[in-house]
């Protein structure tokens, strides 16, 4: 059976060959992925703790690179989740416009949290709260259609 976890484990050439999205997605599913993440985390931890003492700028850049790599590796799994939820919503008859707003809000939240935590890590709380404020405002602006729809319904219900 092609694509079973037992078969593809320990065969990196094959995983690289099918490449692209499906390869990474199956990577998120396998337990090897977790082992890779934990190993890379420990390695990065050692490197960052060394750099932070010697050279704080590089420590920040290293943790930034690591977090970006992690997010890139795990995003295809998130994409699968989004796909399944969208299918469920279309089966339940929920409008896709509101769901799109939800995805946008989640994406904004993830990205701003990523930037804010990194700047908090570097000890810059003001920058972190600034980025978070931008994220909050952007989410609220993106959610305006939902608010308008709720108010419209409310006005329809009220006599």
């Amino acid at each position: 059976m092609p694509g079973t976890p037992g078969r593809s484990r320990g065969d990196p050439a094959r995983n690289r060959r099918d490449g692209g999205r499906s390869g990474i997605t199956s990577g998120v599913r396998r337990l090897d992925f977790l082992f890779t993440v934990i190993g890379a985390t420990l390695f990065t931890l050692v490197a960052v703790t060394y750099f932070r003492r010697e050279w704080p700028g590089l420590a920040l850049v290293t943790s930034l690179a690591f977090v970006v790599l992690l997010l890139l590796a795990v995003l295809p799994g998130v994409g699968q989740l989004v796909h399944v939820l969208q299918e469920l919503a279309s089966r339940a008859g929920v409008g896709t416009t509101y769901l799109a707003i939800l995805w946008k809000a989640i994406a904004i939240g993830y990205l701003t949290a990523f930037a804010a935590e990194l700047s908090r890590d570097a000890g810059e709380k003001a920058i972190a709260s600034g980025v978070e404020l931008v994220g909050k405002v952007m989410i609220l602006v993106a959610a305006i259609p939902i608010v308008v729809a709720i108010l419209d319904r409310l006005m329809g219900i009220l006599p």
Binding site: L58, V61, T62, L64, A65, V68, L69, L71, L72, L75, P76, V78, G79, V82, A100, W103, K104, I106, A107, Y110, L111
Partner: peptide
Amino acid sequence: VLIAIIQLMSQLFATVEQVFQ
């Protein structure tokens, strides 16, 4: 190091846009 990362970050943003449509 930053130059090496910038490309990766643009890839991250593009992937986020694609995943969350």
